[in-house]
């Protein structure tokens, strides 16, 4: 159990670092969506199913969609 949780935390932090270093904003947004998704799995392991549902439906789905729409109306690459 602790090994699975450690791997999930490691993957989450890797996704956060990826969101830091990508110059393509679309890739950075997808990486931050992955952070939210892995965080919602960890919330479920921490016995918080309500928060896990909120994070998966709001943090992973809606926030990513809003970011993608905003990037479509502005610029895709960070210079």
């Amino acid at each position: 159990m602790i090994i699975i949780v450690s791997l999930l935390v490691l993957a989450m932090l890797t996704a956060a670092v990826a969101a830091l270093i990508y110059r393509d904003l679309l890739s950075a947004v997808i990486a931050s969506c992955l952070v939210s998704l892995l965080a919602s799995i960890l919330f479920f392991f921490l016995q918080a199913p309500d928060v896990a549902m909120a994070e998966a439906s709001i943090g992973a789905a809606l926030v990513t969609a809003i970011f993608v729409i905003a990037i479509r109306r502005t610029k895709r690459y960070e210079e």
């Binding site: 199913p49 309500d50 896990a52 549902m53 909120a54 439906s57 709001i58 789905a61 809606l62 969609a65």
Partner: peptide
Amino acid sequence: TPGGGFQGGAVIASAFL
């Protein structure tokens, strides 16, 4: 059960999305 107004509202909004 787990869930509630905020989660259900977000699911409905994702249907419109």
